[in-house]
């Protein structure tokens, strides 16, 4: 039995090393399945909780064009949440269970969505910084070993590319706009820069699982390395439109070719993750309420489906 498991594990690892994707019915170590479920459901939760801070501004978008763009973007996030829940379902957990974990606070989602969107410029900052950081992570995950997750990520990355751009475009029009608009843009950068840097996760030096997850291609790259790439790409974009990053120690190191940054406030990060962010309670409540208020609707549709044969339904 033990030997058998060893052999399976070796075959599993060999497949991954060759770049062959693992599919739902293939043998996989229990730890691999569990880690994937945790990551994918967290990722899915982040997409749907992430709809809330931006959804806030759909009704207040300052032009018809911006309204349409924001609607389409937030809708994409719902779609991405759905792709990810579906991909996680191939591992033998259903969506009801994942949502229950979210609603009871057992499952986490990205810390960034616990910060409030106070002005319209925050919508620009989220697209530019938050989606920018997320894309770094997602393009890495698209190369991961689990087939359904990797395929969902490929689709998501394709759709996300406009999110990042529309955010930067908003920042541009504000940065080159009236003095009030420019101040709004700068204020948003001041508030979102550090949370965006933190959302890529703590330094993974002392994470015991990291090596195994990397060798299984569940995790593709260290948090710090993704973070560095994000900073390297983003700082020139901000410089270009005349905004100042809220980090006096931020500077380009010619020798390494990378930006160096000041210390990250991990105490804040862990507090926000733990539930002490400005909006944790409100975000969770909004999701719980939507689910609770939707229950009778879901039941009605099920009852209707039970009563009517599919033929009738299609003819109606």
């Amino acid at each position: 039995m033990v030997k058998d498991e060893k052999k399976l594990l070796a075959e599993f690892q060999a497949k991954i090393d060759k770049g062959v994707k693992i599919e739902p019915k293939d043998w996989m170590p229990e730890h691999y399945r569990k880690q994937l479920i945790r990551m994918m459901s967290q990722h899915a939760h982040s997409e749907i909780v992430g709809m809330l801070p931006e959804g806030n501004w759909i009704t207040r978008a300052p032009s018809l064009r911006r309204k349409a763009i924001l609607l389409a973007k937030v809708q994409d996030e719902a779609g991405h949440g759905m792709y990810l829940y579906s991909a996680a379902e191939t591992l033998g957990i259903d969506r009801t269970e994942m949502l229950e974990q979210l609603h009871t606070g057992k499952a986490k989602y990205s810390s960034i969505f616990n910060y409030p969107t106070l002005t319209w410029a925050d919508i620009g900052a989220i697209g530019w910084l938050v989606d920018g950081a997320a894309i770094m992570n997602q393009t890495a995950l698209a190369k991961g070993s689990y087939g359904p997750y990797s395929r969902a990520m490929v689709r998501i990355c394709k759709e996300e590319s406009f999110h990042n751009r529309q955010g930067y475009e908003i920042m541009c029009s504000l940065a080159f706009g009236t003095p009030e608009q420019k101040a709004m843009a700068q204020d948003a950068l001041n508030r979102w820069w550090w949370p965006a840097i933190m959302m890529l996760g703590p330094s993974d030096d002392n994470s015991p699982n990291s090596a195994e997850l990397m060798s299984w291609k569940v995790k593709m790259e260290s948090n710090d390395s993704i973070r560095q790439r994000f900073i390297d790409r983003t700082v020139p974009q901000g410089d270009h439109i005349g905004l100042t990053f809220p980090d006096p120690l931020l500077k380009f190191n010619k020798e390494t070719g990378h930006y160096e940054h000041g210390p990250i406030n991990w105490e804040e990060f862990f507090n926000v993750v733990k539930g002490n962010g400005p909006c944790n309670k409100a975000r969770l409540k909004a999701r719980v309420d939507a689910d609770k208020d939707g229950k009778w609707v879901r039941e009605a549709a099920e009852a209707y489906a039970m009563k009517h044969t599919e033929k009738e339904t299609l003819a109606a």
């Binding site: 749907i48 809330l52 959804g55 809708q75 719902a78 829940y85 939507a290 229950k295 879901r298």
Partner: peptide, 12 residues
């Protein structure tokens, strides 16, 4: 309704 629909599919 965006973000508050009775189920994700209907939200979309």
């Amino acid at each position: 309704w965006c973000g508050h629909g009775p189920i994700l599919e209907e939200d979309i």
